[in-house]
Amino acid sequence: MTTLGRLQQRFQSAILAGDRTPGLFIDEENDRRNGVAIYQQAYRARLAGALRDNYPVVHRSMGDEAFAALADAYIAASPSHFRSIRWFGDTLADFLAGSPAHLPHPALADLARMDWALRGAFDAADAPVLTSAEVGRLRAEQWPTQRFTPLPSLRLVELAWRIEPIWKALDEDPDAQTTAPVFDPHWLLVWRPGLDCLWRSADADEAKALQTLQQGASFAECCAQIADSAASDPAATAIDYLRRWLADGLLAKAQR
């Protein structure tokens, strides 16, 4: 370890720990001339700002004060390893789920999952959307091996609580009055067919079917997966899903 390396470790520790006298700077003894606090404050403010940007609805739901306390705790537990601050906060939902002190209601972790999925879809890779007309032109012999690929922006999010109405109300109005969500395990689909993100709720069977497509399965394999699920009429279910995915603009045109 070089002298410079040790110096940087000491400065970094001082910023992280809030220690104002790491023994590195002139004027450390003079409170008014001690600039370490400026770095300490700027560090926390910058990361807390990134969390607010990435979790706008969690922020609105908790309010400034509780969100600031959450941000402090998260920053201390999960400092950034990212080159770009855009990714900071990637584990906030799990952190929330594991820290009851910051969790007035367990559904808050689901709100965080929804915020993060939307943030991820926002600047995910683009792809042209597959249309019903294009699927209509497929020949019969193409169907057994046909693959339908979801858009690269598609996020499948498992939720325990029915939080979508709360998310929507707070997204539209920061001061919206909301009631506690009901426990209702299901999935959330988030995708971006153009510039704007879309989302809707889904049941586990549909989410699993999409998951198999994301993993590269053919439509025939996807149908087999649907048949293994509880669907009473697997063939009709598979066709329903496909129609809906096309209407949603959730599948990508095949790559040439």
């Binding site: 410079l4 390396g5 910023i15 990361l47 400092p79 990212f82 900071f88």
Partner: peptide
């Protein structure tokens, strides 16, 4: 930052020959 952390700040260097 150091030890793989990014403090997302522009921290000054000591102005030395070693630096």
């Amino acid at each position: 930052g150091t030890d793989s952390l990014n403090l997302h700040d522009l921290l000054p260097l000591p102005y030395t020959e070693a630096t």
